[in-house]
């Protein structure tokens, strides 16, 4: 069931993106940007919930109650950002455009409920891509120091980009559409990513073979709940 698998992949990406980015709340570089980035982190968590609902079952059990190997998020989303806003921003930018590509296809699927959900989520996804496009441009053109930091971030993340498309249906086509969305923004900011195709150089997350950094994040995320897994919290 490629569609269900793709929905699960995106839902888990959204969950872990929201988890990683919400941890920045109160620590962002500018108060206003802190607030905006936190709003979008909340959107990611909410989108995960909306997609888990479509997949069926209790969204909390899906989000918190699975063994690590049952998660289908890619390695990129939980890669530690080392308190570096450049990495956090570059990652969100690439993940947001990937989410847009998938949601566009979900909105064209044969499942009326999924079409409805994806259409609603796409409107909010545009908030993220608009905001992040503008920030990639600002930071890339914001002086030599900022440009170097952003290029370093993209260099650090590039090896993990293939992982976004691992196990994803119609990966080649979707990769092309993703490039078409990110390339003009990167070019306007004189930034480059070294990714030539959807074949992953670092992979495993989407098939449950997670890197250690995911295992650590998942353990932290489920720490309180696992004290009493069956209780209400």
């Amino acid at each position: 069931m490629p569609l269900r698998d793709d929905v699960m992949a995106l839902a888990d990406d959204k969950l872990m993106s929201g988890h990683m980015q919400s941890d920045w709340t109160g620590l962002g570089p500018i108060l206003e940007e802190d607030i905006a980035a936190s709003a979008m982190a909340q959107d990611d968590l909410s989108h995960a919930q909306v997609l888990y609902e479509w997949l069926g079952g209790d969204p909390d059990a899906t989000a918190f109650g699975r063994q690590a190997q049952a998660y289908r998020c890619c390695d990129l989303v939980t890669l530690p950002d080392e308190f570096d806003w450049a990495i956090a921003t570059a990652r969100r930018f690439m993940c947001a455009h990937f989410a847009t590509v998938l949601l566009q296809d979900f909105a064209q699927s044969d499942d009326a409920d999924l079409v409805d959900r994806a259409a609603r989520l796409l409107k909010e996804q545009a908030i993220q891509t608009t905001h992040l496009n503008a920030w990639i441009f600002r930071l890339g053109t914001g002086g030599t120091d900022a440009h170097a930091r952003m290029q370093h971030a993209f260099d650090t993340l590039s090896p993990y980009v293939g992982g976004l498309f691992e196990t994803i249906d119609q990966a080649a086509d979707r990769f092309d559409r993703w490039r078409a969305a990110v390339d003009p923004v990167l070019q306007s900011a004189a930034l480059k990513i070294d990714v030539t195709g959807p074949e992953s150089t670092t992979c495993g997350g989407r098939s449950g073979q997670h890197a250690e950094h995911f295992i650590l994040q998942q353990a932290e995320m489920t720490q309180v709940r696992s004290l009493e897994p069956d209780a209400a919290w």
């Binding site: 206003e32 905006a36 709003a39 979008m40 908030i127 905001h131």
Partner: peptide, 20 residues
């Protein structure tokens, strides 16, 4: 109120804070 370097950013921040 908010502080922002230009109108584009100020509008985005107004949505993501006060708009919600």
């Amino acid at each position: 109120y908010l502080d922002a370097v230009d109108v584009d950013l100020a509008l985005q921040y107004s949505r993501e804070h006060y708009g919600l």
